[in-house]
Structures are given as C-alpha cells and as structure tokens.
Design a binder for these strands. Structure first.
Length: 300
DNA sequence: AAGGATGTCAACCGCGAGTGA
DNA sequence: GTCACTCGCGGTTGACATCCT
C-alpha cells in the first residue's frame, strides 16, 4: 500500500505563485493565524496544497523576513553554526533572525561553499581541504575511536527535554563529537595532527602540497587562538512547545497572544546568546542577539 | 546580437517524526 | 501497539537571470 498523497493533486496549482494567491494567503493568515495547513487552502479559497501554502508563507510571505543580501557577519555565523550543526538548516535559520532555512541552504550552496573552498577549507568537514586526512577522519569518527577532548567541548543538558529534543541533541552531539574527533579536532591539536601523519607514513619528506597544508593548518591554529573561540560550549535545547504551554485547540488571536507571552517569559529567564557562546567570550548579548530571541528562537 | 554556460532561488518531493484516536 | 494524519525538514529540480564567448 503506497503512501497517501498529502493533498488532492488533481485540482491544485503548481509552480510560481501569483500576486492574487499571495494576497489570499496573507489575508487568511492575518485573520486566522498560522497552522492547519491541510485545511487552509480550501478555507482560503486557494487551489494549492497545504504544503505549498506553508512553504510560501514561511519562505516568502512572513512579515518578519529580512530580505536582501547576507552580511559578512551573517556569513561567519552561518559557517560557525554549520561547523557545529551540519546541514541542519532549520536549526541554523532559527538562530539567524529573519532568515529562512531555504534561504540559508541556497546561500550555503551558492556562495559560502565556494568561499570556504577558496579559503582552502572543506565545506563539509570545516577542516583543511586534504583528501587523506578527510578519509581517515571519517573512518575514525565512524568507528567511534578515542576522542580525547570530545567531553571537554561538549556539555549537554538534558533537563526538561522532550524525546524529540533528546534525539536532536544526540544527533548534534554525534555531529560535534565526530567533528572534534576528526581533522577539525586535529587543527586545534598539533599532537593529533602529527600522529595522523605518522599513521599515513608520511612523517618525513613532506611534499610541497603537504608543506602548504601544514602551513595553512598552523595559520588556522593561531587564528583560532587569536579569536579565543570558546570551546567550552554548552548546548541545551529549550523544552518543546507542548511541554511549556498546554495545547490550545483555539486558534484565536487571544490564545496566540497568551502563547507569545509565555514564550517571552521563558525567553527572559533562559535566554542564551549563541553567537557569543560560539565566538567571542562576552557575558552580555551582542546587539544582534538583543533583537532576536537568541538560541531558542527556533522553537517560537 | 545570439545562444550556450553558469548562477540564483522559489518551489517541489519524499521521508521521518510527532500526535491523537 | 497500531494506524492515519499532519507537519516540518533536507535534498533536488527547474525557471529565470546574468554572464561569457
């Protein structure tokens, strides 16, 4: 038995949205709020499937979207978050106010990948672009070999965490651990880098390429030291919506306001400035984060 | 100016996870 | 525990724009 289609395909429009369709969707959501995507098209008089409506709203019509080019600051944040989270575009988007996962994914594939490659950095591993070490590191990560400093860099807080959040944490943890067990870790640890070389049997008689990589690696090491990257990263996911606020069947503006207020209260008590945690060691929220909900924005 | 190559980005598709009956 | 339904995510596609020859 095949999977049932998400919607009636026969009488639905596909492709680019017209202004009229946009207007209908905006108007409907303005009055009724988001949610119930499956029934929305019919209720709003749109010949679209719910998925399509949701996507259009989230990626294009939402009023809080920041249109326009990415700033250098955003570039660097995306790179940092990607190095920690991998291709978790929605998580990354949740930490960049006004940006969508689709937008960031596209931007990554079209701009940042190239930017990193031109810097001699592998966009996937965030380590130096070196075929040999990449292969070896992947094997090491996959077999769960010793990760001397993995615990130092990852402190996970499982308090008030839903099963889904735990799964997410485990995924992130795996991501981070493999990152620090691989050549990413080795770029912070010359000893490990040397041992990798020994394993390759290339400890003597470096080629020009190897010299270049080593030089590049040293540059990266000193560059990270200069930036005082905070490796004592603590990751704690916020409780899920359902854990915080009883589900309300009502979609009224009042209940939405009530939810919003609850989130704001949570925000005040547990706000974490992620970009600062990841980078510079400052105790206060940076100007960027003051205008967003910081780390937990994803859940709002 | 033409048309092929390349880049960009909105939209689609398939899948997995959560949830309620 | 199972099933059906819904939502959301990540990868991919394709239309359009821009660049290059």
């Amino acid at each position: 038995m095949g999977r049932s289609p998400c919607c009636e395909k026969a009488h639905t429009n596909k492709g680019a949205w017209t202004k009229e369709e946009d207007q209908r969707l905006i108007e409907y959501i303005r009055i009724h709020g988001e949610g119930c995507w499956r029934s929305l098209p019919k209720a709003a008089g749109l010949l679209r499937c719910g998925k399509s409506c949701r996507l259009r709203w989230i990626n294009y019509l939402r009023p809080d979207l920041k249109r326009g080019n990415f700033t250098d600051e955003e570039d660097e944040l995306i790179i940092k978050f990607h190095s920690l989270l991998g291709n978790k575009w929605s998580l990354i988007a949740g930490r960049l106010p006004g940006r969508t996962d689709n937008e960031i994914k596209n931007y990554w594939n079209t701009h940042i990948k190239r930017k990193l490659i031109s810097r001699g950095i592998d966009p996937q591993t965030h380590g130096p672009r070196n075929e040999k070490t990449t292969t070896i590191s992947k094997t090491t990560a996959a077999t769960g070999a010793a990760k001397p400093n993995a615990n130092r860099v990852t402190q996970l807080n499982f308090e008030n965490t839903s099963p889904r959040s735990i799964a997410e944490i485990n995924h992130l943890k795996g991501n981070i651990e493999s990152k620090y067990s691989s050549n990413f870790y080795s770029s912070f640890n010359p000893t490990k880098a040397e041992s990798t070389e020994e394993n390759n049997g290339t400890s003597s008689g470096m080629t020009t390429d190897e010299e270049h990589h080593r030089h590049h690696q040293q540059e990266r090491e000193s560059s990270y030291e200069n930036q005082e990257v905070n490796l004592d990263l603590t990751i704690a996911l916020a409780p899920s919506r359902s854990e915080l606020i009883p589900r309300s069947s009502s979609n009224s503006a009042e209940s939405k306001l009530q939810q919003q207020t609850s989130y704001q209260l949570l925000d005040q008590t547990r706000r974490v400035c992620t970009c600062c945690q990841l980078g510079s060691q400052r105790s206060e929220l940076c100007s960027k984060c003051q205008n967003s909900n910081g780390f937990y924005r994803y859940y709002y």
